[in-house]
Structure formats: structure tokens, C-alpha cells
């Protein structure tokens, strides 16, 4: 049973923003796969603004190395999009793992980010692509780094009258890139942990390493210090051991020693070693 609410279905971004600024207790409705579950379990809003009719927000385009992803792109659309597959493979892979086929047809990347589950599959790939989010309201547009946008699990910096309209990422063509996740069943499962990576190597040396580890820290974690330290380092067993050890230390520093780390730390360690080895 859903609580009572009234919905408005604007066809343009401008109309949507106007509604948002005039309504009290309004919630933006995109794919609905998270929101309707929460509403069934007790969340309530007097109004929802169903933005899925706004076609401008479904576009995926690129300009040089920058990729612009409309926030209403579904997980399915991203998983099969050619631009994403060529320049941000880990994101395509991650979106191909979200929920089930129906959930991927329904859920949107913008909704996924605003919901801000620490286990959301799209987060780690977006982080290694240095994603920015674009937030629009009647009063203007602001852009911020995804890392700053997500404040805590299930909590973001989005303001009541704002819509997350676009996500921009840097394409990394030519990188060895991927996404790996671990789940308790083979499909349709929440990630127990996940790793996205994009690595550039030349002649046995790391040129550029980008890693993001999901579900170990309050939000997916990018070990930037270690990434920097790997630059121009020889790709050998010792380098890898040291780097992985430092990443683990950093994770523990961020999160403290959690009970789940009995499982997660050895797994992250083994997976990172594999990933760095290629």
C-alpha cells in the first residue's frame, strides 16, 4: 500500500523546476525502483514530481573526452551505450549488473546517485572517471564533484528544489578498465563489495592507475595517494604488495575495523592484487 500523494508530470525541465520551487514536501520521481519501496515502508511526501517525461535528461553524448550522461538514462541504456562501452567500460559493466533486467529498464543513474546507497554499483566506476554532478534549480545551476555530493550513506547535498540533471565523466579510452563485484547470489543481488579500475601501463610501468573500492567505506573509496605513488612505478610483485597493503590500511583508517572486514579485507586484497597484475 502506497501512502497518498499527488503527482505532477512535467514535460520540460523548466516546468519541473517551477513545480519544485512551488511545492512543499515534493519528491522527485525517476525510475521509482528505490523510492516506491521506501514509500511502501513508510516514507511519505505530499507531492511527487515525475520527471521521466523530460527527454533532454535521457541523452548520453560526448565531446572530446568529456561524456555527458543525462540523469534519466536507465541502467540498461548505459550498459549498452557505445560511448560508455568505449570510454568508460567499468560503468557499462556495473550498470549491467544492477538489479535484474526489469530493474535496469526502470532505474536511472540519477536516481541511483540521489539514493546514495553505499552499495550502488554505479558509484565506483563514476569515481574513477572523476564524475561531476550537475544540480539545477530555478535559481541556477551548480556543479560539484560526486565525492562531495554524497555526504554519507543515503545522504547527499541535493537541496529540496534541485534536480540532478546530468553527470559528466572523463572518458578513459585506451585504459585497461573493468568492474568486479562480489554477491551472495549469481544475479539480482546487492554487491557485498565491488572494485572499479582503469589502468594505463607502458613497458612494464604503471603510467596512470585509478581505483575505487565500493562497500568498504561509507562511500566508495578512491585511494588517491596510492594511485599517485604508483605513477611510473615498475609493475612488479613488490610494488603491488606494497600498494595493496597501503590501500587496505587507508580503508581501515577511514572506516575503523568493522566486523564485516573479517570477510572483506582479504577479498579486497586478493582482488586488488589480481587487478594490478592485470
Amino acid at each position: 500500500m502506497l501512502p497518498d500523494f499527488a503527482s505532477v508530470i512535467p514535460e520540460s525541465k523548466e516546468d519541473a523546476l517551477a513545480y519544485l520551487s512551488s511545492l512543499k514536501s515534493a519528491k522527485i520521481f525517476a525510475g521509482g525502483t528505490d523510492l516506491l519501496v521506501k514509500m511502501r515502508r513508510g516514507e511519505s511526501y505530499s507531492h511527487i514530481v515525475d520527471i521521466t517525461g523530460i527527454h533532454d535528461l535521457k541523452v548520453i553524448s560526448d565531446h572530446d573526452e568529456m561524456i555527458n550522461i543525462g540523469a534519466l538514462s536507465t541502467h540498461y541504456e548505459i550498459s549498452v551505450n557505445q560511448i560508455i562501452s568505449e570510454k568508460a567500460l567499468s560503468l557499462a559493466q556495473a550498470c549491467g549488473w544492477v538489479g535484474s533486467p526489469a530493474i535496469r529498464n526502470m532505474g536511472t543513474i540519477g536516481g541511483n546517485l540521489v539514493n546514495a546507497s553505499p552499495a550502488a554499483d554505479s558509484l565506483a566506476p563514476l569515481l574513477i572517471h572523476d564524475a561531476d554532478v550537475v544540480l539545477e534549480s530555478k535559481d541556477g545551476t551548480r556543479r560539484m564533484r560526486l565525492e562531495d555530493f554524497i555526504l554519507a550513506p543515503y545522504k547527499t547535498d541535493i537541496q529540496p528544489h534541485e534536480i540532478l540533471t546530468f553527470i559528466t565523466i572523463k572518458g578513459l579510452p585506451g585504459y585497461r578498465e573493468g568492474y568486479k563485484r562480489v554477491t551472495k547470489r549469481a544475479a539480482w543481488a546487492i554487491s557485498r563489495l565491488s572494485i572499479a579500475w582503469a589502468i594505463q601501463e607502458k613497458g612494464g610501468f604503471y603510467k596512470d592507475v585509478k581505483l575505487a573500492i565500493g562497500s568498504c567505506t561509507p562511500m566508495p573509496f578512491r585511494p588517491r595517494k596510492v594511485e599517485d605513488s604508483l605513477k611510473d612505478r615498475a609493475k612488479d610483485e613488490k610494488t603491488i604488495q606494497v600498494a595493496v597493503g597501503e590501500i587496505i590500511d587507508e580503508i581501515i583508517k577511514v572506516s575503523g575495523m568493522r566486523p564485516s572486514f573479517v570477510y572483506k579485507i582479504p577479498v579486497v586484497k586478493a582482488l586488488l592484487e589480481d587487478i594490478l597484475k592485470g
Binding site: 503527482s7 520521481f29 521509482g32 516506491l36 526489469a102 526502470m106
Partner: peptide, 19 residues
Amino acid sequence: CTVLIDNEPHYSCLTLASK
């Protein structure tokens, strides 16, 4: 509760009829 919307599977329990 799967139905096809534009020939793609969707869960009708999480789809608002108005959509």
C-alpha cells in the same frame, strides 16, 4: 508482476500507472 512496457520487462508493482 512483470509486464512489458514498449516490449521491455518492467515490474508493475514499482511502476506508477500514470507513467
